[in-house]
Amino acid sequence: MKIKVRLFATLRDGRGKEVEVERGESFSTLDILEELKIRREEVALFLINGRDGSFETQLSEGDVVSLFPPVGGG
């Protein structure tokens, strides 16, 4: 299964804007972090297909995961 991962702000350093993570049958956002060597505390916000999810949610083929470090403004 392949999952598209979109990275933002400082999480792009050394990784690029978008990567594909491929693993066995079933995996979660936590597995993606491990694969991309991103510590959990570096991620302040993340979205699965533009919606809130949990780190443990099992992803499905075609899902898009967006990862953000702490950012804000207004």
């Binding site: 979109r6 933002f8 702000a9 400082t10 302040a44 916000l45 979205l47 533009g50 967006s66 953000f68 470090p69 702490p70 950012v71 804000g72 403004g73 207004g74």
Partner: peptide
């Protein structure tokens, strides 16, 4: 704080463009 100590100093407020867009 991640926002005031890291996010805003590094990117300013414009960093919101992608976040708000990704949320639709």
């Amino acid at each position: 704080n991640g926002v005031t100590g890291q996010g805003l100093p590094t990117y300013g407020t414009a960093v919101l463009v992608n976040i708000i867009n990704e949320n639709g």
